[in-house]
Computed example of a mutant assay.
Amino acid sequence: MSIDPSSIPNFGGQQPDPQQASGPAGPVIPDQDLVKQLLDQMELKYVVDDEGDLAAPWEEFRTYFMFRGEGDQRVFSVRTFYDRPHSIDEKLPLLESIDDWNRRTLWPKVYTHTHDDGTVRLIGEAQMMIGTGVSLEHFVSSTVSWVRASIEFDKWLVEQLGLEKDAGSGSDADAAAEADAADAAAESGTEADASGKDADDQPGEDTGKS
């Protein structure tokens, strides 16, 4: 299966030239190769970590594109780890802020993770059941929206808490794409090191690092 570039919402960079989609008309089962193709079309750099998960790195966060489960229970998860540390004393106002975000937005749903040293970091996540197949257009538009939302959340939190953001912050792939996407989207983002990818799996989830 392949992605029709004309079906990808503008991510802030140069839009690829439209071409005829060559993929199947019916439902597809997305995989990592499809996500790589989408990230290429979005002109975003990515890496594959030691555990085989795909990640798009930014300066302040890293977004992982993970597949978990088997058969009908297979899940696609876009999970963002925000690298900005917060002290344990800041946790209460931080929770109040992300509660407000979670009430008013569809994705990503954001939660905290408190490390052993007392440092608090944020994780955002959106998930899609893909075990029985999904529309390629739905998969593409959802994934692009989730990435935009992850970026917008970081921008929103900086404004909400009066945090200072590095002037040079931006995508390793394209800093201009991040800025344009953040202005255009109405959603959010995250980074952290790969070792914490499964630290905050919620009960009933099958999307964490195994």
Rank of each mutant, 00 (worst) to 15 (best):
I3Q: 02
D4H: 06
P5C: 05
P5E: 07
P9F: 03
G12P: 03
G13E: 11
Q14N: 13
Q15V: 11
P16C: 00
D17S: 13
D17Q: 14
A21P: 08
S22V: 14
S22I: 14
G23H: 00
P24K: 05
A25C: 00
A25V: 03
V28N: 05
P30L: 06
Q32M: 13
Q32L: 10
V35E: 04
K36D: 00
Q37N: 11
Q37E: 14
L38Q: 06
L39S: 01
M42H: 07
K45R: 07
K45D: 11
V48I: 11
V48K: 06
D53K: 12
A55I: 12
A55Q: 12
A56K: 14
P57F: 00
W58S: 09
M66Q: 12
G69I: 00
D72L: 15
R74E: 07
V75A: 02
F76K: 02
S77G: 09
R79S: 05
F81C: 13
P85W: 01
I88V: 09
K91S: 10
L95F: 07
E96N: 13
D99C: 13
D100P: 02
R103D: 14
T105S: 15
L106D: 15
W107D: 12
W107M: 14
P108V: 01
K109Y: 10
V110R: 03
Y111Q: 15
D117C: 10
G118Q: 12
I123A: 15
E125D: 14
A126Q: 09
Q127P: 08
L136M: 15
S142K: 14
T143P: 06
T143R: 02
S145C: 05
D154I: 09
L157P: 03
V158W: 08
E159Y: 02
Q160C: 08
Q160I: 04
G162F: 04
E164D: 13
D166M: 10
S169K: 13
S169Y: 12
S171K: 05
A173P: 00
A175D: 04
A176I: 07
A176Q: 10
A177L: 15
E178H: 05
E178W: 06
D183V: 10
T190H: 01
E191A: 07
S195N: 09
S195P: 01
S195D: 11
G196P: 01
K197C: 08
D198I: 04
D198F: 07
A199K: 05
A199T: 04
D201C: 01
D201V: 08
E205H: 02
S210P: 11
